[in-house]
Amino acid sequence: MTKKERVELIQTRLNEWFPETPIPLDHSDPFTLLIAVLLSAQCTDKRVNLVTPELFARASSPEEMAQVPEEEIRAIIRPCGLAPAKAKAISGLSKILIEKHGGEVPQTLAELEELPGVGHKTASVVMVQAFGEPAFPVDTHIHRLARVWKLSSGKNVAQTEKDLKRLFPRESWGKVHLQFIFYGREKCQARGCDGKRCELCQELFAR
């Protein structure tokens, strides 16, 4: 099977199994999504969704968040891990959004990546999920599956992102990235599949 054929089969099966791709992180607007994605670093979405209701009840806008003492933010988000760094970033970016962006989340990758605690992946998630801009955020599930499915031999997520962007249609990036994540979590977990056991792996490499 050629790489092109694998891509077509992957898209077909993912569309069958995951026709709907709800955003896993609970949020109400670009700001709360930005905070939720920031908190999800080295933390599960499930845990983030348990923590954010209390945080957003306390502050759900840059203006409100900028008024919350950093130590209070830290106490609320402690279950997510890396609380000191994340609290500092949340406090800092809230103030920057007010000072430089009129209290709005910027809509470019470059501006997002200038915010404290916001790396390329976080910025990409916000771009595609908050603003509908084409982006292909690569997390550990996607990076692993891209290698298992022989779509990329990238040694880092940056190279994997470039490879996947070349293989999948631009208009599908936002949906496909979530489908990869859902498949990795539900059907092809790292400890449960060696590239030969799960349904799609078998179909891809049995031919």
Rank of each mutant, 00 (worst) to 15 (best):
K86T: 11
S61P: 00
I77N: 09
R74D: 15
A87E: 00
Q67I: 15
V51S: 02
A75E: 14
A75S: 15
L82T: 13
I35D: 03
L82D: 11
E63F: 13
E72T: 15
P69M: 10
L33M: 05
P84R: 07
A41R: 09
R47L: 10
Q67G: 10
I73N: 11
I35C: 06
V37W: 09
D29A: 04
E63I: 14
C43K: 04
F31W: 04
E54Y: 08
A41C: 07
V68N: 06
E64W: 10
P30Q: 03
A87F: 05
R78I: 15
L50Q: 14
A83L: 05
A66I: 13
A75K: 14
V37D: 04
P62H: 08
N49F: 05
E71S: 13
P53I: 11
R78D: 11
A41Y: 11
F56M: 00
E72G: 03
P69D: 09
D29M: 02
I35S: 04
A66H: 06
I73C: 09
P79F: 11
S60V: 13
R78Q: 14
T44V: 08
P30Y: 06
L39F: 06
F56T: 03
E63Q: 15
D45C: 03
K46G: 04
V68K: 09
E71W: 15
A66S: 10
F56G: 00
L55T: 08
A87L: 06
A41V: 13
P53G: 01
D29K: 06
L55E: 02
E72Y: 10
I73T: 14
E70N: 12
E72I: 14
V48R: 08
I77G: 07
V37S: 03
R78A: 14
T32Y: 07
F31E: 08
R58G: 03
Q67N: 13
T44F: 06
R47T: 12
F56H: 00
A36S: 12
P84T: 13
K46L: 02
E54M: 09
H27N: 02
G81W: 06
T44G: 01
L33F: 05
V37Q: 04
V48P: 01
R58H: 07
G81E: 09
A85M: 12
L82K: 05
P30E: 01
A85S: 11
H27P: 00
V37R: 06
T52F: 02
C80F: 13
P84G: 07
